[in-house]
Design a protein around this nucleic acid. Sequence first.
DNA 1: TGGATTTGGTAAATCGTATTACCAATAGGA
DNA 2: TCCTATTGGTAATACGATTTACCAAATCCA
Lengths: 334, 334
Amino acid sequence: MATLAEIAKRAGVSPAVVSRVLNKDTTLRIAKETRERVEAVIRDTNYAPNVAAQSLRSAKSETVAVVFHDIANPVYGEILRGAQEEAERQKKAILLGDAAVGGASGSRLAQMIGGGGVDGLILQASGTRTDALIVQAARQEVPVVLLQTRLDIEAHLILLPDAEAAAMATAHLKGLGHRRIGCLATEPGLTFTEDRMKGWRQEMGGDVDEDCVTHSGPAAAEGEVAAHDLLSRHPDLTGLVCFNAVAAVGALRAARALGRDVPGDLSVIAIHDLKFAADLQVPLTVVRMPLAEMGRASIRTICDPNGARAPTTRITTPPELLIRESTAPPGRSG
Amino acid sequence: MATLAEIAKRAGVSPAVVSRVLNKDTTLRIAKETRERVEAVIRDTNYAPNVAAQSLRSAKSETVAVVFHDIANPVYGEILRGAQEEAERQKKAILLGDAAVGGASGSRLAQMIGGGGVDGLILQASGTRTDALIVQAARQEVPVVLLQTRLDIEAHLILLPDAEAAAMATAHLKGLGHRRIGCLATEPGLTFTEDRMKGWRQEMGGDVDEDCVTHSGPAAAEGEVAAHDLLSRHPDLTGLVCFNAVAAVGALRAARALGRDVPGDLSVIAIHDLKFAADLQVPLTVVRMPLAEMGRASIRTICDPNGARAPTTRITTPPELLIRESTAPPGRSG
DNA sequence: TGGATTTGGTAAATCGTATTACCAATAGGA
DNA sequence: TCCTATTGGTAATACGATTTACCAAATCCA
């Protein structure tokens, strides 16, 4: 394993020269031949600087931690993809955490955050698991970026065009002629849930019946239960806006179980796209969110020295309506 | 930011004592009150050791790099989940790489691998992108674990029960009475492709017609093209074994385009499960692979000091047949 | 020839932790 | 009283890169 000192010895110079050549120090005055000799040794000894030493010296790790609520969630994979992309561009590495399986205070990730091993923390998750991480981050003054989740800590918040997306979905159904439209929302109290509710209400105008709103977690099974209940209580609904596509798959199951044809008897539209949305039993109409852009923005915010200080970023890339086969004009029962 | 030296000063001892208390050095003889005093200062100053310094000193990072071919691939997410789980148990952090968007020689990940910032490298991907990483790993004598991909380098190889899975899928179709069974295989030359072919051939016995085998990449669109071609050439096929579930979704599209009812005219079975396999237009019968176990094994191998030296691990957890609705006894055309 | 610049570097001090080797003071034993 | 253990620590160094301050030798200009 080569060290700076060894390279220096081989090239017949001091370690300082090697370091300054590597880091392109413009204040270094050096003879052309010396530089070439040093560069040659670096090349053919295949030298790479020790990152721990660099990190110790510079108090920077060029690494950012990204913690998800559930890595395997098909919707959020795209955020990670965007983050990865931007990290590559900014020459940062990504330390991955999954709040579902780890991240508690004893975890290596927590140690790294608390021990200066990370330049920033991006959280898509919230809960007791991640609280430990936030505490660590605060101690080291590591900037924190929250995705979609307002918390009472000093952190930068990144939001999606949630109200727009919900409005867009609702408008699509209204445009088709639907009036009695239910809402399968995400968990109450969450930042994005409230924003989407706002968009939905706005678009519904006077037609809103609070009893036609229900909430569920982001799993298909949860969506199924909630939708089953809602559709049983309100057989007159001809449209359903789902705030989460995975939950919407559950809603599709519920509709089927209740013998309601989609889109014949019931139109279903959801926020977020799914990889196989087009291959579902009923190809699902969705409003696609700029998730990759959100991932990119999160890394950008961490890397921009002032970025994490500003309070909020709202992604402005507009959501995209992808019409498939789960929505249609209301039929005989509409 | 607290350092060892500061803690030591506050507690009125030398840094050595603090370090040895933290690391539970049993050779340290210390008065009970002194220890308690030190521990108290550590606690209420909320001290956490600097990881870069530790890493520099110990030449260990407690970090493992995991590089995927495509993070967003719904099939392989489960591997990551398993790896994450085991990493948590072993107190390792995971540095994530995606060969699709980065990982080239200039990337921070490559720098970290080459600079001793990583204790091991797990590769699910192969190709020019990852070659740079392998070179870096070799230089630092970082152990490499390959998932499913035999390469001509010094590395530990982890394999799934590929032959068994293919045999199981084929046997399911034969058990239903199918005889003319096609095979939509993965790309030729790959380790797991060959193993699955072996399992398929074995189970097919004499019934195998080489012209009924085709290959495709792991994307739905690729599977669709290949399957469309195969099914057009061989309209007599009543069964299709797909080596990859994502490609199988494409095959389902192709069957539909050709007007072939699944499972009425054609039974389709695939290797790997999909999150929404049960919600597809035709719920897909699959052979589920122990992917999480593979992820766990990869971390275990890295962490076990002798692990990466042994040449190969074959995961023995048996694949699991999940019968849904894409397979049935051959109909009128069978 | 002498003073000022420029050229081409180097020495040394961090960064924070871990560990080995050592040692003063007290206690114990005869 | 003197010698040996034991107790309870400490001093010093290495890990590898970076950077600031400094400086000898060569060159230039008059």
